[in-house]
Amino acid sequence: MTELNPALPRATKKWKKTLRLYSQQKSLFFMILPWMIFTFIFNYLPLTGWIMAFQNFRPGKGYWKSPFVGFDQFAFLFREQGFWRAFRNTLAMSTMNLVFGFVFAIGFALLLNEIKNTYFKRTVQTISYLPHFLSWIIVCGLISNILSTSDGAFNNLLMWLGIIDKPILWLGEPKYFWWIVAFANVWKETGWNSIIYLAAMSSIDTSLYEACEIDGGNRYRKMWHITLPGIRPTILVLLIMNLGFILNAGFEVQYLFGRGLVMDVSETIDIFVLKYGITLGNYSLATAAGIFKSVISIFMIVTTNYLSGKIEDERLF
């Protein structure tokens, strides 16, 4: 058929070549196309619902009858002082969570990796992720007991050590709030988060360690020059992906600890959306906030991915 058209011999050639390439890879396509369609159905199709963000959506009316309001919902968000405060708090808390989360999980995995006794290692590892299975409400309850001013363990300890002379109302002071949230996250998730690093470490070729030992490298050198580089791709990938979640600082801890005294620092975007969107039945506002978060997320991963490619020569996409 193509031969009948002498005007496009080159294009035809290219076309043929492409076709050949595609046919060579048809098994790859076969493995991935169904899932791309699948993802399209479950993840992209519902995005038509983003139309709500430009409406005054009422569940009773549906997409077609709800009035369009243009960018009013976004305008409400961006004009609202509380939203920007929530934005700041979210950024601060998720940055702290990110830093502490990575440092503690990786540090813990490194130390655990040094333990030679398998049973001890497995026991420690099992226990370390137990807090992950507790709901925030339980963990927060325990924390507020520990931080209590009346016979709370933490105040007692500090007083016994002579660091303070009267109990401090930890949960009532805005300046401690972000730290408490970060600590709570570390407590609950360090063990769980370290699992992926342990898995990555287990794939490091042992011959590298042997070689290092022959060169006279000690434990710390092995950690620094073999183990850490070994899990570096994992760290980077997780870091980039998690930077995309920078506006998801969660809301449960902040909600559970967020009393009036610390409200200025405790409210996150999710809480703001809960209060002014979902609870008031304003789905349009919630959707608008969701779109805002998506835009920031994608901006974040594109940037970090670019930087990571420049600096570390490791890209996510």
Partner: peptide
């Protein structure tokens, strides 16, 4: 009044 009343939860 104890200041802690402003931070405690319902269970407490």
């Amino acid at each position: 009044i104890e200041a802690e009343t402003f931070t405690q939860n319902y269970d407490q």
